[in-house]
């Protein structure tokens, strides 16, 4: 039997890429940001990340094993990525039970109810995050001030994020110029010395991750560039119209979760569009919605909501926006 020749349809050669390798690549790209968060927020960051990753993997395992009764595929790394991204969206002093609830929502509700990897319309980590933000608003918005590695898990001093300071200040009638004095300068923000979610603060670490993802061809440039580009253009217009009431584009891009969202969340394979043209539209949508929520919305930060809203449009865009086929005859000429 064994000496019979195999016959299969072409191609007979297969690339070395696997789902697992791609997910491992994303995890590697997230390491700089993780190190930065440990550097700024102490071992609380390790506790939060570990809890999140372990509970995400555990929920995925339990559901696949006992509800789906199918082979367990937690080794493909997608649950790990979800876990890390969920942790990166949380403050580093959040109680463990909330993380577990968030992980449950991410995996069980946002991913597994749709059939598991590849079928979920919304980014699981973001669904978990938004669920937690709405359910536990106090714990989710008490941001520890980055104090360095020695900070304990629960004794951190909390403060507001730059975006919250600006939002609050503008409501009280302060001008941007006054408020800019209260928030860290661009250089500090670039390095991550500001309040915020664990993973989002250090722009420099996230950019290192982006370079790794691009070099390894795990993602293409379309989504991050279109998000950041559209935000830059939109905020510049607002800033030029009224520089007293609108922050400059540099501030908008460095503050909050724009870079984390643009590089790691919006580019999630499953929930992002399938062709470059649609990716650009999707990215621009996220960029503009984020600014709209930040400037006119109730929340100081809008990246999560913007990505989730655009996720909802992805199937529609995939169905109606088609790439130009090779040899397509242009109708009128």
């Amino acid at each position: 039997m064994s000496n019979l020749l195999n016959v299969s349809p072409s191609p007979h050669e297969h690339g070395q890429e696997t789902t697992r390798k791609l997910m491992t690549g994303v995890i590697i790209a997230l390491i700089p940001a993780f190190l930065a968060s440990v550097f700024y927020f102490g071992y609380g960051a390790i506790i939060v990340t570990a809890t999140s990753v372990i509970s995400c993997m555990l929920f995925e395992y339990l559901i696949q094993r006992f509800i789906f009764k199918k082979p367990v595929t937690i080794t493909d790394g997608s649950a790990v990525v979800t876990g890390i991204l969920l942790a990166f969206n949380l403050p580093s002093n959040i109680p463990v039970f909330i993380i577990i609830i968030g992980a449950f929502v991410s995996i069980a509700i946002a991913k597994m109810t749709f059939g598991g990897l590849g079928n979920n319309p919304f980014n699981p980590a973001l669904v978990g995050r938004v669920f937690m933000l709405i359910s536990f608003p106090v714990q989710m918005t008490s941001w520890p001030v980055p104090k360095g590695f020695a900070t304990g898990y629960t004794d951190a001093i909390t403060g507001a994020t730059p975006l919250a300071i600006v939002k609050e200040g503008l409501k009280n009638g302060d001008t941007i110029q006054q408020l800019m004095a209260q928030v860290p300068g661009p250089a500090q923000m670039f390095l991550g010395k500001m309040g915020g979610s664990m993973g989002e603060v250090a722009a420099v670490a996230l950019l290192i991750g982006l370079i790794y993802l691009l070099v390894k061809r795990i993602i293409t440039w379309h989504i991050p560039v279109s998000i950041i580009g559209s935000m830059a253009i939109f905020t510049t217009i607002l800033w030029l119209i009224n520089p007293d009431k609108n922050a400059d584009p540099m501030f908008h891009i460095l503050a909050g979760g724009v870079l984390l969202g643009a590089i790691f969340m919006a580019t999630d394979y499953v929930t992002s569009p399938m062709n470059p043209k649609t990716m650009m539209i999707y990215g621009c949508g996220i960029g503009i919605l984020t600014v709209v929520i930040r400037v006119w919305g109730a929340y100081p930060e809008g990246v999560s909501f913007a990505i989730l809203i655009m996720n909802a449009f992805v199937p529609l865009m995939n169905a109606f926006i088609k790439p130009k086929r090779f040899g397509e005859v242009v109708k009128n000429g």
């Binding site: 039997m1 019979l4 020749l5 195999n6 016959v7 299969s8 349809p9």
Partner: peptide
């Protein structure tokens, strides 16, 4: 058996192949 089919388990595909 004279060979081993190593493709999608679908008769239509096997039939077009060989």
């Amino acid at each position: 058996h004279t060979s081993k089919y190593d493709g999608v388990p679908d008769c239509r595909i096997a039939n077009t192949l060989y």
